[in-house]
Design a protein around this nucleic acid. Structure first.
Lengths: 234, 234
DNA sequence: CAAACATTCTAATGAACAATAGAATGTTGG
DNA sequence: CCAACATTCTATTGTTCATTAGAATGTTTG
């Protein structure tokens, strides 16, 4: 049933590829990937993850156990809840690499995304460093519409945190004489799209940035955290 | 049975993560990874792949069909045989990224490899660019002990092709007054280790380089192909 | 066109896995 | 210590997947 030719190099290879395959097994379920993607934005409880992925807690817990067994995530208990987070930055790099390759290899991903969002004309058209300059000179307002905890962990330089469900309330405080650029978790996240649509209806000059912090960082640009509003790098 | 909350964003996410999970599914089998790894060195027939992975052709063919359905590899027919190759360089990048993360996250990979090879004192200790300099000035002889076809596709600059099964025959042509550096497919390939052991027994001054062409290229260093013995870059 | 060969397709079996529900664990607050 | 809660563990069921063997396809050679 197993390999009969049990030479030493064969045993070595079998062991090694068995280990590598664990990564594949862990990332072979859509729901697990959805949770991993979310975890790349920051620590989350089982409950939050289950809610986002639209599965029940039991099921989410089981999936998280698989991710955890593959060393992709780690758990930390805080009172009643357990918080999961990515085991290390190399996991985010890996996830981004996977996504990038998948986008390149599967034309249908691009197609389905383009078809869903369909807002090429209201997307940021200039380069990331141009955007960074505009933001630094306060010519535009960069809006992070993710939950505050994700903003706190890492956000684009000079970005202001306005979680999507506070947007309605904060709308009066947004400038009407400046361009607004909204971003969220990345090219597949719907939050910035929702924000952009809503603000446009109210007459704001608003563009959507398809980047998230992962994409931004991957482009070699600096991030900021809540403690220091601007990263020391760059 | 499927997701009841069939909102549009949910459908989008389901579609996207379903696609990403295809990559995971394809890379969840050790044998498939072994073949993919080999394909990163160059085009191979089903037969060759089956031989290397020590499975029968039927099984190999089935696995290759899975890799092919996930767009990781492509097939080309030439006469009786079908040759598979990686679909594009991003697949090699992806594979290297996966391997790198797995090495970082699984201490046991390192352990099992160290235990198997156990030749730290006879491994190249200087940097890659130092090696490149020594090779260029002909102070050392760099030996590519992989099959000739893999050498032809890409090899380290100034490397000489001496496939492992021709080594015995070529041994007289190797210099005894220079250091020899042998490399093969990468840190887990046994070929360079075999070559190094064999040459040391014959009294040669030989070191093993754990790099393969993937690792070398990933370090930002140039490669050569058979047509031009030295890459145009750098 | 027939024989030889490499590969793929089809079907069947057994193992691994996702989803689900119920029981158990561990933590907080009274 | 008990009640409420989040999470995990256990057991069950249906599905998917790897492997195997036999039939079929496609290609070359005589």
């Amino acid at each position: 049933m197993k390999t009969e030719a049990n030479s030493a190099p064969r045993r070595l290879k079998d062991t090694l590829y068995e280990h590598f395959a664990r990564i594949g097994k862990a990332t072979s379920s859509p729901k697990r990937l959805e949770m991993l993607d979310l975890l790349c934005q920051g620590e989350k409880s089982v409950e939050e993850l289950a809610l986002h992925a639209q599965i029940d807690c039991k099921n989410a817990s089981a999936h998280l156990k698989v991710l955890s067994a593959s060393r992709l995530v780690t758990a930390r208990r805080e009172g009643k809840r357990v918080f999961y987070s990515v085991a290390d930055d190399s996991v985010c790099d890996y996830w981004l690499a996977t996504r990038t390759m998948a986008e390149k290899r599967f034309a249908e991903i691009d197609r389905v995304v383009k078809c869903y969002f369909d807002d090429r004309e209201t997307m940021v058209a200039y380069d990331r460093d141009v955007l960074l300059g505009k933001a630094r000179r306060k010519e535009i307002v960069v809006l992070d519409v993710r939950p505050r905890s994700e903003y706190d962990r890492a956000h684009l330089p000079h970005a202001r945190s306005v979680p999507i469900d506070e947007l309605e309330r904060c709308i009066a405080s947004l400038p009407r004489n400046k361009q607004i650029v909204a971003y969220c978790r990345g090219p597949y996240c719907v939050l910035s799209h929702q924000a952009s649509t809503m603000l446009r209806e109210r007459g704001f000059d608003v563009l959507r940035l398809p980047d998230g912090v992962l994409e931004w960082q991957n482009a070699g640009l600096p991030l900021a955290t809540s403690s220091s509003s601007l990263s020391s790098k760059e």
